[in-house]
């Protein structure tokens, strides 16, 4: 594998995406929402002005969990089901299929990351200038988890696009997956737990956490913000099950990495055996 080739393809993908009006629109909307939530987040409680980092992270969490998977799936699917003429020309060059796949994925990830980082950075500068730097490390970790979530769903989008080369079909499946992970999965997990009793039901729920990267990011963020009490007794049991806050975060982060590596490996294997 030639890393220079991967970097060149990534750079090209980044350039194409950054000149795309939809990427620019996403960056602008995401940035505006993050800054607005940071600024107006505690107005409902009778206060005005900028929240601190911990409150901001908790407030932005839901926005990230809804928007980032959707945008990543859409951008990933559109890019990997690109026009046949362009794809054929690229794959006919003396480059391996894995280099093309990784290059495009890296370029897409950079596009999504830079779009998100703009909003996070502006909010971060505003918060630190008004409320100081308390909670900055947790905020940084939350940003990192948000980026990982983007990469997880870009990797899933690659599998979808490799399996379904028709843009409309791949797009439909991506939307279904967004609904599944963001909206349906928790209902399924809760329904599934009703099949078990006592400890078995708890164990089922804990294990089901690792089947949904959206939930993993939610839980890891809340643990890092020391906000796991929001889950009540279940939160305490979760921490006990996972072995305390540090090991919980570590385990969830490693599991998220697996959610990136496994789809990429699967798509690489499928791509090596199929027609372009």
């Amino acid at each position: 594998m030639e890393y220079k080739i991967i970097i060149r393809i990534a750079r090209q993908e980044l350039t194409v995406n950054f000149r795309n009006k939809w990427t620019v629109l996403f960056a602008a909307v995401f940035g505006a929402l993050v800054v607005s939530i940071s600024y107006f987040g505690i107005m409902a409680e009778g206060f005005s002005g900028m929240q601190n980092f911990t409150r901001t992270s908790a407030s932005i969490l839901n926005l990230v969990l809804y928007i980032v998977p959707l945008v990543s799936l859409v951008m990933g699917t559109l890019s990997f089901t690109g026009d046949k003429g362009s794809t054929e020309l690229l794959f006919s060059q003396p480059v391996s299929r894995a280099e093309v796949l990784l290059g495009k994925l890296c370029g897409l990830f950079l596009s999504v990351s830079l779009s998100m980082l703009g909003g996070f950075a502006v909010a971060g500068i505003l918060i630190s200038s008004i409320n100081g730097e308390e909670g900055l490390i947790q905020y940084g970790f939350f940003v990192l988890l948000s980026l990982m979530l983007a990469l997880v769903f870009l990797s899933i989008a690659v599998v979808v696009a490799v399996v379904n080369r028709r843009k409309s079909k791949a797009f439909g499946i991506s939307l279904f997956l967004w609904f599944f992970f963001v909206l349906f999965y928790d209902l399924l997990a809760l329904g599934g737990s009703a099949l078990f009793k006592g400890q078995d039901a708890n164990l089922f729920l804990f294990l089901s956490l690792f089947g949904n990267p959206v939930d993993m990011v939610r839980v890891a963020t809340l643990i890092s913000l020391e906000n796991v009490s929001i889950f009540g007794a279940a939160g305490a049991a979760l921490l006990r099950f996972l072995g305390g806050p540090t090991s919980s975060i570590l385990l969830l982060t490693i599991s998220l990495l697996m959610w990136i590596v496994v789809p990429v490996k699967i798509s690489q294997q499928l791509l090596s055996r199929q027609d372009i």
């Binding site: 090209q12 350039t15 194409v16 026009d83 046949k84 003429g85 362009s86 054929e88 020309l89």
Partner: peptide, 12 residues
């Protein structure tokens, strides 16, 4: 190789 229908990214 020149494919049957050649397409390049429009914004490059």
């Amino acid at each position: 190789y020149l494919p049957q229908r050649i397409v390049f990214p429009e914004n490059l």
